[in-house]
């Protein structure tokens, strides 16, 4: 996994609450068996005026010019500013894959849906929770040209105007994201403990270990 340390970037303000994963990446793109290539279809139904299909060449598709992602001033932004309950709906990891593939590295919102929040950390995307008053203020500040610096080690955001905002993050998640660690390898360090747990459970509740044939 790509580590996340510090970024300085433009910010895209997506001023909608309850942005669901169907909006982030519509279902037809979930048919892919790969982890990459979802970026061009991020927010597909909001971003384009036609109906997107997998493997479509997006370079000539009619753009919805009103949609914030299509405004040239926000090109190459790595930070997305969002409203509450961002990422609600399905568990599809294609949502953070699409955001990461597009180039987003951090998302700031007052709240995230649980599964989406968790999925972000598996893909080098940092979801930052700030109180809604602060997020509201950032939306007001966020005019074209606005930038932020996000520093994970310091757990800080420095705004365009030099203000420092602290954010909280679980220390284990921070450590894994800062170092881009492989979660499976970390868990497998506990292989003996897992085997011991299984041995105990087989004697207590053997029906949990039935062969599904």
């Amino acid at each position: 996994m790509k580590p996340f340390r510090k970024i300085h970037s433009r910010v895209v303000p997506l001023d909608r609450a309850n942005v669901d994963t169907d909006a982030i990446i519509p279902k037809q793109f979930l048919k892919s068996i790969r982890r990459t290539g979802f970026g061009p279809y991020l927010f597909d139904e909001w971003r384009y005026q036609d109906r997107g299909e997998p493997d479509m060449d997006c370079s000539n598709r009619p753009l919805n010019q009103d949609f914030v992602l299509n405004q040239p001033v926000y090109r190459n932004a790595e930070v997305l500013l969002a409203r509450e309950n961002f990422g609600c709906g399905s568990s599809r990891e294609h949502a953070p894959w699409a955001l990461a593939d597009y180039g987003f590295r951090a998302i700031i919102a007052p709240s995230f849906a649980d599964i989406f929040y968790n999925n972000c950390f598996k893909n080098g995307v940092l979801p930052i929770i700030l109180d809604s008053v602060t997020v509201d203020r950032l939306f007001h500040e966020c005019k074209p040209g606005y930038t932020l610096t996000v520093d994970l080690a310091e757990q800080s955001i420095v705004t365009h105007f030099g203000e420092t905002i602290h954010f909280d993050i679980d220390p284990a998640r921070k450590h894994r994201l800062l170092n881009g660690l492989d979660d499976i390898a970390l868990t497998l360090r506990h292989a003996e403990a897992i085997k011991a747990y299984e041995a105990k459970r087989v004697s207590e509740a053997h029906w949990l270990f039935v062969d599904l044939k």
């Binding site: 568990s91 990891e93 599964i115 868990t187 292989a191 897992i194 299984e198």
Partner: peptide, 14 residues
């Protein structure tokens, strides 16, 4: 529900 990275995690580690 879990994401695909966790599906892999459960496959590999239970």
């Amino acid at each position: 529900g879990i994401g695909t990275s966790e599906v892999e995690h459960v496959l590999a580690t239970q």
